[in-house]
Simulated assay, not measured.
Amino acid sequence: MPENHSVILTSILDNDFYKFTMQQGVIRLFPNAKVRYQFINRGKHSFPAEFHVALRRAIDDMAVLKLSAAEKRFLKNTCPYLDSVYLDFLEGYRYQPSEVKIEQDGDQIQVSIEGLWYRTILWEVPIMSLISELFYTLKGAAHSSDEAMTELTRNKIESYHKLGVTIAEFGTRRRFSYANHRLVLNALEKYGKGTFIGTSNVHLAMLHHTRPIGTHAHEWFMFHAAKYGFKMANAMGLEHWVQVYRGDLGIALSDTYTTDVFFRQFDKMFSKLFDGVRHDSGDPLLFTDKVIAHYQKMGIDARSKTIIFSDALNYEKVERIAHYCHNKIGISFGIGTNLTNDAGPEPMNMVIKMTETQPQHEDWTEVIKLSDEQGKHTGTERMIHLAKTILKID
């Protein structure tokens, strides 16, 4: 491994927006909660020798990142629901690399994170982006030229414009590289007027004068299941989100314990208060039918609500969903890997997920996710079986 190396991440805001919105909620409601996260190599990728050394160095470099005065102003002006106390906290926040453990056994790596939830919540996305970028760099993967990437992104966003849909960029965690991510955002900003509506990456939202997009992730509900039980996880998660944001950031994630279970607790109050729901697993058309049926049952015009689709999207999938939803319900799309890692090499298939939590000086409790797609379940078989039994899921 060369002694001279370049720092890959240069901004503390180079992260998904929902990590910061959840962090504010955790600080306010669960400041003593501890968590553990684990890297899952879904694609069975083979890592080059000494990969763990390069990753360790890149993570250690993150210790110097801090919120700049300009970044703080951007958040204050753009995100009024992030209060001054939280912004002052973020200004003083520093990554602690000791919270991250990395090992390598042959061509496989193990990455684990442990610590207070309000501190460790920011690690997941940047570590995944580092794993992805270093993987391609150390493998010497050939990739498209800057001009080709720009033209490809231009063609994509212009196709979405003709389709009449709005697109947000959600691709930080599995991007080909930071430089490639910038190219994509430059093209989206230049050619996507009226179609490109923002990015989940807060740093790039600031650089490209657009808005950061996101609300909460599965871990918000996974923690609530550990603290309040599987039956109360969705209701308490939503209740606490409302307590913190009072109607802002109103897109609810529905598939932590399957959409069917979610809608049992998404009552009329939540259905009216939240602007809509996000689809992240399972058949998008079947999901659409369930959402519309739920709003009809609540006496709500589905056309006043929105579904954000964000599950492994490409043009063909977006086109099919858009035609199906036309005049039925509001829609928008969050596209990730297909925008930020369509550079030639096959995109990586990996996740980092919360595996355990210690809610409040209690015992460590395993957490799981039961998405609408069996292959996206995470957690031990024992706990998955227990959750399915309690929630009466076949």
Rank of each mutant, 00 (worst) to 15 (best):
D16Q: 08
N32T: 12
D275N: 13
M149I: 10
A179S: 10
L185F: 10
Q104T: 09
T210P: 07
P347S: 14
I390P: 00
Q104V: 11
V242K: 14
N201T: 12
Y136A: 03
R119C: 09
Q24W: 14
K101D: 14
G250Y: 11
K369T: 03
S332F: 10
S271G: 09
P48T: 04
F30V: 04
W241C: 05
N180Q: 06
T340L: 01
A168D: 09
I331L: 08
Q23E: 08
G375E: 00
N41W: 00
N32S: 11
Q358A: 06
K369I: 04
G106F: 00
K290W: 03
P359Y: 04
N349D: 13
I331K: 05
M350E: 14
T357H: 00
I307R: 06
M298S: 05
D267K: 03
N314W: 07
E373T: 00
Q38W: 00
F47M: 08
V111Q: 04
G43A: 06
M232I: 11
G282R: 00
A312F: 05
A69V: 04
V202M: 06
A205Y: 03
N338T: 12
D105V: 03
A205V: 09
V85A: 11
E356Y: 13
K317I: 13
D260L: 02
F287I: 02
G336K: 14
E319A: 14
H240E: 05
D275A: 15
G92P: 04
D283K: 05
I40S: 07
G334V: 01
E50P: 06
H240P: 02
A233M: 01
H161T: 15
D311T: 08
S281T: 03
P80M: 07
W117R: 03
P345I: 03
E169R: 02
L339P: 10
E239C: 11
V35Q: 15
M128W: 15
D16A: 12
R174F: 01
K305R: 09
F30Q: 12
R173F: 10
E158F: 02
G276M: 13
R246T: 04
Y160N: 11
E316W: 06
I8F: 10
T10N: 14
S304A: 07
